[in-house]
Design a binder for these strands. Structure first.
Lengths: 241, 241
DNA sequence: CGAAAGAAATTGGTCATACCACTTGACCAG
DNA sequence: CTGGTCAAGTGGTATGACCAATTTCTTTCG
């Protein structure tokens, strides 16, 4: 593996992680009140400012509701958190990947992907079209290198999402991608069938070029389903073991 | 209008809003560096802690990248922000609603809604099923009261999303709903065709009961499309004016 | 002159302490 | 039962200081 920049985490990052973990794992139940900022500062041996920065972020993420004079009240993250919080649910307490979350992400991608391609076919501009074809060619040239093809496939979807001209798709894609990046290398083999499918990438690019929304959506659906089947196959082998 | 709780916003909330506005409207371009915390504190006449709380949230939202000793660097929110940031893009500088964002949200809903219904049909439990039917009945009883029917329709989808058993759908729904809530009353008339469609709600509930995923998805698609057509019709009238 | 080394300035990160503003609950007067 | 008062607890804001990483400028030396 290539060298990685050293991950520096500030104190409040650490506090944030600890608190989210406690909440997700139910040690602070919905409806409960967080310990006071002063108590948390004492317990975690950090300054109150660090606690406040972390709790503010909890509020933004939709995990707590802060009320002046009353305290920080824990919410049900399933009802109040947004898609940005999904990466935080990918790993469970024991460090294992939560497979239901992975399944959910792929299911959502299968629902969105076709419509992204459909929209891109009707709204793409020439620069995006050219970039799609360039990526298809690079992808073909990178055969035998799964990791590289995976990155190119990501870049391909990135352009497609841009071409869809839908800011909601753009932001949702960013959120899902954050989950994907976390486990990218680990799932490369599982998704290999999809990742190496240069033919379908080209078909999508061609359909987008021809403004053939129906074909673009249909091929995108088939492409996403390949990855999904790959995962289900891997999981079924897992269950047998 | 019913009495509303008084909205209190803290200083850091205000700072956060101002900074997001500046970034979204391009006065701080991607790649640029934010003024130092000390400068911001001086300029906005608040203490540095309030600035830090706000900037931390910018970092969590994906708008800036903070580097010790270097500064807070502005990112391209279109590429780095997640779906949680969508509500912040709903209103433009002049206070008008950004119609492209509304279009995008409805488009995304049309893509997800059918798959949510499909998944719900295969995974729902009895309690969720009963709740769906209860909401259908209440919705029928609330005819003539568009606002009430709108709330019941939201509750209906809420249960459906739960029943889908997909945490990604759950969180994405939460994000989209935050956008919807912001303009809920304003768009009730525009989406009226969908909101009053008790027949399709019942069809979905029935299909979910019968574990008929295909029908559930198909009817959900038709239902979402009604709302979308309502918006497009309203917008076309708008363009003529 | 140019590159390397070092010093200074700038910036984010952390800390301690104080005080203000709001909420809550207990108690009391009407 | 209502409304008022009060004290304790909690979040919100403010200062001022110092640490740590980075950037910029200056100096030094080949």
């Amino acid at each position: 593996m290539a060298l990685q920049p050293i991950a520096r985490k500030s104190l409040s990052d650490d506090v944030y992680e600890q608190l989210t973990t406690e909440i997700v794992e139910g040690r602070f139940e919905a409806g409960a009140t967080l310990p006071s900022e002063r108590e948390l500062a004492e317990a975690l041996q950090v300054n109150r400012g660090a606690i406040r920065e972390a709790v503010r972020r909890l509020g933004q993420a939709g995990l707590v509701d802060s009320r002046h004079g009353s305290g920080h009240h824990v919410l049900d993250y399933r009802r109040a958190a947004g898609l940005d919080f999904l990466p935080r649910l990918l790993f469970r307490a024991d460090g294992d990947v939560d497979l239901d979350t992975v399944r959910g992400v792929l299911e959502m991608r299968s629902a969105l992907g076709p419509d992204v391609a459909r929209a891109a076919a009707s709204r793409r501009d020439d620069a995006q079209l050219a970039e799609l074809h360039r990526l298809c060619a690079a992808h073909a040239a990178a055969a035998e290198d799964l990791g590289e093809q995976q990155l190119l496939a990501i870049a391909f979807w990135d352009v497609l999402v841009d071409a869809s001209g839908n800011i909601a798709y753009r932001l949702a894609y960013n959120s899902l991608r954050q989950v994907y990046e976390t486990v990218r290398e680990a799932v490369a083999q599982v998704l290999a069938d999809e990742i190496v499918d240069n033919a379908r990438m080209r078909q999508i690019a061609a359909a987008v070029r021809d403004a053939d929304a129906t074909t673009a959506a249909e091929v995108a659906r088939a492409l996403c389903e390949r990855g999904r089947r790959g995962l289900e196959t891997a999981l079924s082998l897992f269950d047998d073991a």
